[in-house]
Computed example of a mutant assay.
Amino acid sequence: MKDRAETRTLAGDAYAVIHRAIRSGLLKPGQRLRFAELQALCGMSVSPVREALVRLTAEGFTVSDDHRGFSVAPLSVAELLDIVATRKLLEGEALRLSIENGDSEWEGRLLAAHHMMSRLPRERDDLPTAIREDWDLRHADFHRILISACGSPILIELCEKLFVRADRYRRLSVSVPKQDRDVVREHERIMSCAIDRNAEEAVAALKDHYQRTADAVQRLFEMQEAL
């Protein structure tokens, strides 16, 4: 039992390392994943690395081929639009319910999360086309708290999975040149409408926020195809 528990712990650590490498772009979309290289990256034996890949495949971050093994899941406009459309449906409803059910404590946590996020720039100073990790953590907290009062643990779990699934596309959106958007104002609008208990406007602002990210990434794909 102890050996199995240790393997699960190592598999969790391997998952975190590989997932982070995929999110950061160190492991690129479509890249074939070789066990020897992943073992070196994680500093582990093959068993926990394999378990981590099985989990990543179940979550859509890697794909498995009987003949070629594992590779990083590709990015596509089709998947992007599917994720965004589903997020609009689920998170829109979760936000509506949170505005309906949320108390003053929820309001306070939302205001605090927005304040903490707004005090940091989104882009890295040394690499303006990349997201700062500390901002990214606060950004995730903001969106998590936004829907936390919906009253449905299952709905929250589904929204969390979609948030994680959208992460690679969100990171790509920062690198799109000449964007006509103000992400700070977008978050502020969502927060203000939620605090004012204006569910219709808050949900519309949230959906617009997600659509703007999708539009930016889709434009990037089109630019790459034109090269």
Rank of each mutant, 00 (worst) to 15 (best):
residue 97 L to S: 11
residue 177 P to L: 02
residue 163 F to N: 11
residue 48 P to V: 11
residue 53 L to I: 09
residue 2 K to V: 02
residue 53 L to V: 07
residue 37 E to R: 10
residue 153 P to W: 04
residue 3 D to T: 07
residue 198 N to D: 15
residue 4 R to S: 09
residue 166 A to V: 15
residue 40 A to M: 00
residue 127 L to W: 13
residue 191 M to W: 10
residue 54 V to G: 00
residue 120 L to G: 06
residue 52 A to Q: 01
residue 23 R to N: 13
residue 79 E to M: 07
residue 6 E to Y: 14
residue 27 L to T: 08
residue 109 R to K: 06
residue 150 C to M: 01
residue 128 P to C: 08
residue 176 V to E: 02
residue 62 T to N: 02
residue 227 L to E: 05
residue 25 G to T: 01
residue 131 I to S: 04
residue 183 V to R: 10
residue 57 T to S: 07
residue 55 R to Y: 00
residue 213 T to F: 15
residue 136 D to R: 00
residue 41 L to V: 03
residue 18 I to V: 05
residue 134 D to S: 14
residue 77 V to A: 14
residue 223 M to S: 03
residue 175 S to I: 01
residue 101 N to P: 05
residue 58 A to P: 04
residue 167 D to Y: 02
residue 55 R to S: 00
residue 43 G to C: 01
residue 197 R to M: 14
residue 207 K to I: 13
residue 144 R to K: 13
residue 212 R to T: 11
residue 92 G to S: 10
residue 224 Q to W: 15
residue 180 D to K: 03
residue 193 C to V: 06
residue 217 V to Y: 15
residue 57 T to F: 02
residue 94 A to R: 06
residue 29 P to R: 02
residue 181 R to H: 06
residue 46 V to T: 14
residue 138 R to C: 15
residue 167 D to I: 01
residue 48 P to A: 12
residue 183 V to Q: 12
residue 107 E to D: 11
residue 33 L to K: 09
